[in-house]
Design a binder for these strands. Structure first.
Lengths: 143, 143
DNA sequence: TAAGATTGAAAACTCAATCTTT
DNA sequence: AAAGATTGAGTTTTCAATCTTA
């Protein structure tokens, strides 16, 4: 990569990033219309689901989901209020908490995925050919 | 496109979308560190710059930037406070306003682009080969 | 009645300060 | 002093209601 990308190329990337911001908004709107929480909650629940039956420290959730730690306490408060996860004291480090997904949390995750996936499919499929998608997947794997 | 994409493919798209959300956060952080406003302001200024010397109705800015109209009034208030744009009454429709970018606004836009572009370059270049980028550009053009 | 724009109140987010434990 | 987590205060965003004109 010695050659610098052109301004046009960079603008195309900017456009991609902008378009996907819109996509996220659309997904959140659909989820909300279906009485479901937004993608921030999904991200947290997904990470907790992945490490089952173990849990995650709160700071680990922050690292994995890329949500800021300031907001995380209150976000997890709300998820706990809805009983989608459970906070337990940490044995190894009594400063911390360990968070576990509940059965209810897993259920909510399952309800959200079809809506999430539907939007992604529509977005990418409507505009790309199968060959494009295959190619794109290869490239995305590197990002 | 008769074939349905696999769950793995959709997950890869989800990951791409998530990664770019992070990228936007990083860009906003850099802009803020440089004493510059965030990407929402950039979007507004860019659209105004594009239509020069004409202006845009506020609802048109909302359509083009995909920012919600509720927030738009107050966002534009702030941009006007900093004299980056100018609001004038609309001759054809006295309900509305027409918004024009100022010289100061153009200056701010120019200051922001290098930081914006630098992040995009770093993000894409660091992980992709030149061939990937060329290919990606072709695909992105369709989105 | 509807569209463009604004505003008030509530929710969410961000930053810094704080508390507890290491 | 530093790390994990929480909290308070200020800002921003969102939702609904409002105002003016078409």
């Amino acid at each position: 990569m010695s050659k610098k990308p052109s301004a046009t190329t960079i603008s195309a990337w900017a456009k991609l990033v902008r378009t996907q911001t819109l996509l996220v908004d659309q997904i959140n709107t659909s989820l909300s219309a279906a009485g479901l929480p937004g993608l921030a909650w999904y991200d947290v629940l997904l990470e907790l689901h992945r490490v089952q039956p173990k849990g995650l420290r709160q700071y680990e959730i922050g690292e994995k989901t890329l949500l800021t730690k300031h907001n995380l306490s209150r976000l997890i408060d709300k998820l706990e209020d809805e009983q989608l996860l459970e906070r337990r004291n940490c044995d190894e480090d009594s400063r911390g908490k360990v968070v576990f997904i509940t059965a209810e949390g897993k259920k909510r995750l399952k309800q959200m995925w079809p809506i999430y996936a539907e939007h992604l499919s529509t977005f990418f499929e409507s505009k790309l050919t199968l060959a494009d998608i295959t190619q794109l997947e290869k490239i995305l794997a590197k990002l």
